[in-house]
Design a protein around this nucleic acid. Structure first.
Lengths: 216, 216
DNA sequence: TGGCGATTAGGGGATTACCCCTAGAATCTC
DNA sequence: GAGATTCTAGGGGTAATCCCCTAATCGCCA
């Protein structure tokens, strides 16, 4: 038997979920909460297997609740529920302990499927959600590619020097490592400062990491 | 009519795909390739709407081919096909122009679905693949949370200094910006070097960005 | 209320990074 | 094979960082 806590500030929604779940033989709703505070309070009394948690709770948000649950009741699973198919919400809640994420317009069958999957120790994400994530993943990559174009090509040797700079080698150490003169390394350094439009080592490292210059 | 190019080094696989696709009224395989070189060569002659591209091609890999296609034939869609459900492969190919990713054990129906979805301008990822991605996404978040713990807490003022260092301010400029003495900034700098276990400015910046120290 | 970390500040010196300049040799490219 | 780019290297100087030390003041908290 799966013991379920439902947390959402919309009473009708909670009741709807309640009626759907209680029709199932292997599930029972043991607690209904309408605020984040209530969830944390009730958890000291009841032991649900899973919490159906609305992300946009008033007061303490679902994100905050999720953090606390992960820290204090790590055995309790969380299925995040939201109106919004927003990439930021999804990653944020995944970041903080949820095992799944579904939208509020999800059908009965998928809801039951999600609950059983998560209670079986796996993770569950609705198709809409995964699509959103994948798309935003692709977008981010594209954007990072786009901004890279502003940066002139860094030569093979310069990359080697740059790599060592990022790894905290001094100019002298780089010279020894690459079997070249100190002056040569300085020469590469100043080329890099120019090409990457940096003022100093700090900028060199930051720009390198922001644009993932060493990852090709 | 969807014009399809198939690229895989296993002849039997290519022929199998060919026979599946040619049974459909709205699809036709117009070109079969067995190496990456061949794909790039054929693209100068034929105009496919979509390429079914094996990632693990011998010689020029599917990744490389995908990069080139994205750059030179941006209107041509790519559906990546692979034996392996590896997170690194998937992100790499998404990174470089593919609109979809399916596994070789994918059934006929899903293959057709994927092709039609992508040619309709959308993206397609098989369920196995999205699961892998989501899991590795979660893992990474967890790991980054975990590794953060190794780093001693950086104080408020130190973070201010650190932020300016990352933004290429020199010690003198930081002193002016924060209305404190040069020696004070140097003091904070050396505390930071100690706390973050860095040898120099380069390390300071790298560790800061790797651990996202300034994002709180 | 004593201790601890954070913030402030300094002296003095060693090392490193940055800048301006030139310039030959190797390598790639058209 | 000519031209561009890269890799190499140096002289000479200034600015910045890093290191070792001390030390006063402040706030917090057990």
């Amino acid at each position: 038997m799966i013991n379920i806590m439902v947390a959402d500030d919309h009473t009708m929604f909670v009741d709807g979920i309640d009626s759907i779940l209680n029709k199932e033989d292997d599930m029972q709703v043991i607690c209904k909460c309408y605020t984040g505070e209530e969830v944390l309070k009730q958890l000291k009394v009841v032991q649900p297997d899973i919490i159906l948690l609305d992300i946009n709770l008033p007061g303490i948000t679902g994100i905050e609740v999720s953090k606390t649950v992960l820290a204090e009741y790590p055995e309790v699973k969380i299925l995040a529920i939201s109106m919004f198919n927003e990439e930021s919400f999804v990653t944020e809640i995944l970041n903080n302990g949820a095992q799944g994420y579904i939208l509020k317009n999800t059908g009965r069958k998928e809801l039951l499927d999600a609950i059983r999957t998560i209670c079986g120790g796996k993770t569950y994400f609705s198709k809409d959600v995964t699509n959103t994530i994948m798309k935003s993943l692709m977008k981010k990559r594209m954007e990072s590619k786009g901004s890279t174009k502003l940066i002139p090509k860094v030569s093979r040797r310069e990359k080697e020097v740059l790599k060592l700079i990022v790894e905290e080698f001094t100019t002298q150490e780089i010279a020894k490592e690459l079997f070249i003169s100190l002056k040569t390394v300085e020469s590469h350094r100043s080329s890099l400062l120019n090409k990457l439009n940096a003022r100093n080592t700090a900028g060199l490292v930051r720009i390198t990491m922001e644009n993932k210059i060493l990852e090709n």
